[in-house]
Amino acid sequence: MREKSIVTILFLLFSLKTASGQTVLLSVDRERDSIPPERGPNLKKFSHLFLNAGFVAGPDNPGARIIYGTSVEFGAGARKKYKLSPLYSMGWEIGMNGKIFKQKQSEGKIFPDTILNRVERMEFSSVYISFFNRINFDVHRGNFMGTFLDIGIRGHINVLVTHLTKNDLPDGSKITSAMTNLPYTRDLFSDVFVRVGKNHFSLYASYRTSGMLRTVYHYPEPPAFTIGMDAGVFWN
């Protein structure tokens, strides 16, 4: 409603002046200029994009050992935050998440099979929605993000799960296989997360609260913990 009235005022102001052959150097509509902003890092509402990247932190399970350091996750999305008090905000995100579990090729491997490959990894690509609570520690700050602690929950839908292997054939050629539509993975999973940050950057840790694999297959689950860094993309 308010935005509609701003547009009307602007229209009236511009139509009010019927003719002018002058070069406009400055034009300030105080009606518009003096409306207190509602959107900002420490105002009523704030939306921004984010990117994040992290590492799978374990612990892994026998039969599905992973290689730490190269088992990673990446994400991107949009975040919206509603400030309820200087101390407390709540928000939600929609995003994409990719997890790559690079599997150790060692004796005892059973997931998803016992074959040892030169390289093997499981790649989970999901979209998710999350809800989070934010506690700010610097309540006297101005319109900037400040130092915060987020605690939240995410619900994921897997959009693509790939089992990828790479092998060398005896004739020296290399073969890469990528299998999708895997029967043993679940479509939905969830995790909880904690984020501690200041302004644009935060460190996060997440813990998956549900399995990624169907229980009927009795496969060992990939590690549930990830840790990483999140970067908010916004000015201020």
Binding site: L12, L13, L16, K17, T18, A19, S20, G21, Q22, T23, V24, L25, L26, S27, V28, D29, R30, E31
Partner: peptide, 23 residues
């Protein structure tokens, strides 16, 4: 006395401003 609008223009013509007074 509350300022509603202000502007600066490079004057290029003799008739520098023209408004509908009824508005």
């Amino acid at each position: 006395g509350v300022v509603r609008y202000y502007a600066a223009e490079l004057a290029g013509e003799k008739e520098v401003l023209h408004y509908y007074i009824s508005q």
